[in-house]
């Protein structure tokens, strides 16, 4: 599994275009890749849920099958040499055999919302129950005076459940409910270890 960033100009690449760039880089890297069988073999890859155009990301994931041993640091370096500016692999991680598929666990996206004032975090279900669109959430934030109309947005993490976000952030986290259009603040469960 690759963990990568998509920043600057590269945040204007569509999901499909970023996938293309990643596939090309993987093919160029010379890593032992796992291809599907058949007439036109395809690289076995799965990506994080699509990111809207213009939104940067600090922790996207890509799962790709390999057919052999891979040295994580070497792979990272090779890939970064073959990627367009703004797309950067930050970590190459082995996937444990019992790990669920990316599409199964990456259900919630956490977005950093910056407009020059106080930075806040927005949590959004990307699939399943309560799924919401980032655009609608930003409109809701602006309507309630919580952020400017066109803030800078960065997806900072992907999670299986809302409470996992506190492993990465400290601060105000607002969750948007796609069904009702409501915003509510969530707080870390006190676990007494802090």
């Amino acid at each position: 599994m690759l963990k990568y960033r998509k920043e600057g100009d590269a945040s204007f690449l569509s999901h499909r275009e970023a996938m293309r760039a990643m596939e090309r880089a993987l093919r160029r890297s010379g890593l032992p890749l796992d291809f599907s069988e058949g007439f036109s073999p395809r690289l076995r890859m799965s990506f994080s849920p699509a990111l809207p155009l213009g939104v940067a990301a600090e922790a996207e994931y890509l799962e790709v099958g390999v057919a052999g041993e891979v040295d994580p640091d070497e792979a990272r370096e090779k890939l970064n040499l073959a990627l367009p500016a703004g797309l950067r692999v930050s970590e190459v991680l082995p996937v444990p055999p019992n790990m669920p598929k990316l599409s199964r666990w990456a259900r919630f996206g956490l977005f950093r919302v910056e407009d020059g004032g106080e930075t806040l975090y927005l949590l959004l279900a990307l699939s399943g129950e309560g799924q919401g669109r980032l655009k609608d959430a930003v409109v809701a934030l602006a309507q309630r005076g919580m952020a400017a109309e066109r803030p800078m947005l960065t997806r900072v993490g992907l999670y299986a459940s809302p409470d996992e976000v506190f492993e990465d952030v400290r601060g105000k986290v607002i969750i948007f409910d796609g069904r009702t259009g409501e915003l509510s603040e969530i707080e870390e469960e006190p676990d007494g270890l802090d």
Partner: peptide, 16 residues
């Protein structure tokens, strides 16, 4: 302007 046009990837010039 990039956020407001179709396929902004056309105008970036950051190709490998």
């Amino acid at each position: 302007e990039l956020a407001g046009v179709t396929r902004p990837g056309r105008y970036l010039g950051i190709e490998v």
